[in-house]
Design a protein around this nucleic acid. Structure first.
Lengths: 342, 342
DNA sequence: ACGCACAAATAAATCGGTTAACCGAATTTC
DNA sequence: GAAATTCGGTTAACCGATTTATTTGTGCGT
């Protein structure tokens, strides 16, 4: 087990002070008027022996860690997974590493994780925040740490965030269903007070009320155990005889919905039309393909990372928080198109 | 921005040496015979002011970081995402944090990431290794760092790994197709020399040859751009007229396959029967549902983390590397069941 | 020959912890 | 009664970097 070289090893080997080595390695040679000759010698040697500064020591001294903490709701959800992936890529290209974790929308766990991130001196935070985390976020901001929220925001915390126009998205999707001639349209979602979910709910409600149609909402408490989602959902569908169409509030909900429909032998769109928030493979490949409200994951990731980088590069902290609201794309597929025969 | 407290602040506030504080905080009070009284005072104060030791400084001194580096092929792939999620959970419960990243099966990127992990002094490595990474892994091991590979292994590197019985899995799946009466069965996969892919290929080939049926293999070079996967795949399916059934080597390949089938209007199983490696939502919800070789993700994650923890807790490094080979579960669904009418 | 500016490099402090070595008085051990 | 041990801690070195302050040597003008 060869031990790692330290800056002192380099210094003694070259018979130079470690200060000099440090200056050279940090590109401050000119500023510090170190002779070109010496710079060359040092660089050559460092390269030869493959010396890499110990980043822990570096971080300890400088207070920077070149690490970004990424907290998503659930990394195994394809929506979050793909965003995480894109953010990772962009961060990596900019010299930052990612430490990630899933919050499970659990306030306590999230607080715990924030503490751990602080502990690790991460330079910036990217979070899809659960409810009840306001104070913790504010505390981060008060300490001058850059925070970017995404997918949702905290209405009473003035920080940067990136999300989509949820209100219009479900409004628009609901209008689409109405225009297709569906009459009894339900909105099925998870019980949540998160901004994105409230907006999605409101968008649906507004569209329905505008036409004087019956508002039909089913809220299901989130649970890791999928049975506890499927059961109430099944009951709901079975009991609502006149149901025409369902708009699902998230991809997870939509997937469960499809499972139930299949189980009950209900066909879409003839028995019940379906639209789900978030697009992904399942919806595209389903028979018939499922209409979905596609979020621009690339754009979301791009915006999140560029807002964060901007804040990281601005030492003053004087930039005002920005809200980026992106557009979704309603991918109309067969599942929401009324067949003529009815 | 209140500055963080350091151990010195605590020490001076209580008029005690910082060493004492350190001993108490590390549970070595008894061993170091520190009076219960003082311990109480210190603990109370620490709790009151919410002091948290700087883990960077701690790591710098001790060489431990309580962090595990997790490198998966692609975190946006549901198979890897769910394993990552489970590993994260288990690690978290054992006091470890995860730094993760995607290798993209890119040797250079992976080397880079390993370097970064080393830099960060991660305590252990969990890797689904790309090809050509043997030396880097060996170098880690030589330096006494615990490494656990999963999903595949490196035949000439003697380290712990966790994977499934790939050979038998495709053999078994192919047998299933044969028993159903399919005659011209193709195996479609990514070009790769990774052990799991070679085994999957061999399992197929052995089953086919045993029956004297025609071996039909299509290898496609992996590419981020899905068009470059779809195109050769489409050509292959169009050109092989007599094709009865296809066994896809990975979930990604399988998904692309379904897309093509849909595009070409081919129905499964009547036109072409289908089985894919890896199970997930898409296969379960597809019409008709797709037979899949389900990997036991929970078990994989469990084994990976417990093997790693064991190595982390054993200072001697004397434990011999272990190979854990888990069983898959062939979930037989309609897509591979010969309809009687033919 | 004196003082000064500047080039080139270094010593020492620092970040926030851990830990081996030690200290002086009181108490045991043999 | 001398040596060893216990008690309740403290001192100071160290981990591997960065950074501030300081030193040394040289050329130059007068």
């Amino acid at each position: 087990m060869k031990k790692k070289l330290s800056i002192v090893d380099i210094a003694t080997a070259l018979n130079v002070s470690k200060t000099t080595i440090s200056f050279i390695l940090n590109g401050r040679a000119e500023e510090k008027r170190i002779s070109t000759e010496l710079v060359k010698t040092v660089m050559k040697y460092v390269d030869e022996v493959g010396y890499k500064p110990n980043s822990l020591a570096k971080s300890l001294r400088t207070g920077k860690s070149n690490t970004i903490g990424l907290m998503v709701e659930d990394i195994s959800n394809p929506f979050f997974a793909s965003i995480a992936r894109l953010i990772e890529d962009r961060a990596y290209k900019n010299g930052y590493r990612i430490i990630y974790c899933s919050t499970d929308n659990d306030t306590k766990k999230t607080q715990d994780l924030i503490r751990m991130f602080r502990d690790r001196h991460v330079d910036g935070y990217i979070i899809s925040p659960p409810e009840g985390i306001e104070e913790d976020i504010e505390s981060l901001m008060k300490d001058g740490l850059p925070v970017v929220l995404f997918d949702r925001h905290l209405p009473y915390v003035d920080t940067d965030f990136v999300e989509v126009n949820n209100l219009f998205s479900t409004y628009n999707a609901t209008r689409h269903l109405i225009e297709q001639g569906f009459k009894k349209i339900a909105f099925v979602t998870f019980t949540s007070n998160q901004t994105q979910m409230l907006d999605r709910l409101k968008g649906y409600r507004d569209a329905i009320e505008r036409e004087g149609l019956p508002v039909t909402i089913k809220e299901i408490v989130f649970n890791q155990n999928e049975e506890l989602i499927m059961n109430p959902l099944r009951d709901f569908i079975v009991q609502n005889k006149g149901l025409d169409a369902i708009l699902f509030g998230t991809n997870h909900m939509g997937t469960c919905g499809l499972r139930i429909m299949q189980e009950l032998g209900k066909r879409t769109p003839n028995d019940i039309a379906v639209i789900s928030f978030d697009d992904y493979d399942v919806f595209e490949l389903y028979t018939p393909p499922i209409t979905a409200i596609a979020q621009p994951v690339d754009e979301i990731a791009d915006n999140v990372i560029s807002v964060l980088l901007e804040k990281l590069n601005d030492r003053s902290g004087a930039i005002k928080p920005r809200s980026v609201i992106l557009k979704t794309n309603l991918k109309v597929r067969k599942s929401s198109i009324k067949s003529p025969k009815k």
